[in-house]
Design a protein around this nucleic acid. Structure first.
Lengths: 143, 143
DNA sequence: GTAATTGCAAATACTTTGCCACGTA
DNA sequence: TACGTGGCAAAGTATTTGCAATTAC
């Protein structure tokens, strides 16, 4: 259950920002950490740990709060539903998505965008810059 | 009106794939070409050229067809609504988006991702690869 | 005890489809 | 004429909110 160092740490960070330690919060964080991939609100609220344990609205509001404090990031990923993933300091993910079957995989290669990100920060004066990079195509199975 | 070389060319391409030349098609293409930025279905169907001229469902179906033949691309851009933009060969856009006010601007700098895109094509066997790169942050006005 | 959090249900937003009338080729 | 296209209205899917009951601190 939610005893992994990562989850413990995440919960601590949440508590530090004023969130209360509820069963729903623990299980949501654990589910996200355990899956290691972006998930939709629907997936999350139906995952075995959360179903019948808490309402979809609860998961929604938790995701909102977690996004606000920077523990979770909301991704577009081109589907109709939004995807949510843990935001782990020092870790950055780019994605490769099949436009046919919708499969999502993380890309291992080092992200070539960070230099450009710095330049944009300087030139535009934007604060808290981050980026989202996705590759879309047809995966071998679908082709 | 829809007399610019770009729009004329776009219409030709559409006709070549079997689409009929209708007023709605012309005005949709012109609106997209004229604005030069990604727009939502809602924006498009309310733009001065299209309002009261054609139904939102019509614009929706046109965008579907245009996306299918590769004339338009659908973008996530993180908003709840999808964005659509013209897909012009040889032109590639990356975006800078303010998470506060939602403003969207195109980035001028050369995109540093094409090399990685080639590598991914080779390593993964994905077909028709393209990418979407967005920077998110708080613009100077909102900060 | 107090304020944050939850569940349920209802409201909203955006997208998508059915069906028949219409216009283009 | 034939078939793609259009308008209108309704259905579908995802998100968001109100409010009273509950729970963490």
């Amino acid at each position: 259950m939610p005893n992994s160092p990562l989850v413990v740490d995440l919960i601590d960070r949440c508590r530090a920002t004023g969130l209360r330690r509820t069963k729903a919060l623990e299980q949501l964080l654990f589910t996200l950490a355990d899956s290691g991939r972006p998930m939709t609100l629907n997936e999350l609220s139906h995952s075995s740990r959360l179903t019948d344990q808490c309402d979809k609205a609860t998961v929604f509001r938790l995701l909102q709060r977690l996004t606000a404090i920077g523990t979770v990031r909301r991704l577009g990923l081109h589907e109709r539903a939004a995807y949510f993933t843990l935001l782990i300091p020092g870790r950055h993910q780019d994605y490769l998505i099949c436009t046919e079957c919708g499969s999502i995989e993380s890309i291992q290669a080092p992200c070539p965008v960070h230099q450009l990100e710095k330049e944009i920060t300087q030139k535009t004066g934007f604060k808290n810059l981050y980026h989202e990079l996705e590759f879309f195509g047809v995966c071998p199975r679908c082709a």
